[in-house]
């Protein structure tokens, strides 16, 4: 189940950056956007190193989760 949640980062990322949230969560959302960008960068860089899309995506999801947990 946890893996499924991890692999749904894309969906969570979309939800968290949707501008319908209350104003008080604006700063947090900006942080989430950074985490999304970091996940995208990780996936792209790892693919450039010859990693499979699948594995790079797993690392990107893990990176995203760790980043969000640090916010």
């Amino acid at each position: 189940m946890k893996k499924l949640i991890l692999s749904m980062v894309f969906v969570f990322a979309f939800v968290t950056v949707t501008p319908t949230s209350a104003n008080s969560t604006l700063n947090t959302n900006t942080a989430y956007v950074d985490c999304v960008q970091q996940a995208i960068d990780t996936q792209n860089r790892y693919e450039a190193a010859g990693m499979s899309k699948e594995r790079a995506n797993h690392y990107a999801n893990l990176t995203y989760e760790a980043c969000v947990n640090q916010q």
Binding site: F10, A13, V17, I40, K53
Partner: peptide, 10 residues
């Protein structure tokens, strides 16, 4: 496709 969707969302 998943990656493209992600970039579009971003």
């Amino acid at each position: 496709k998943s990656k493209l969707n992600f970039v579009k969302m971003r």
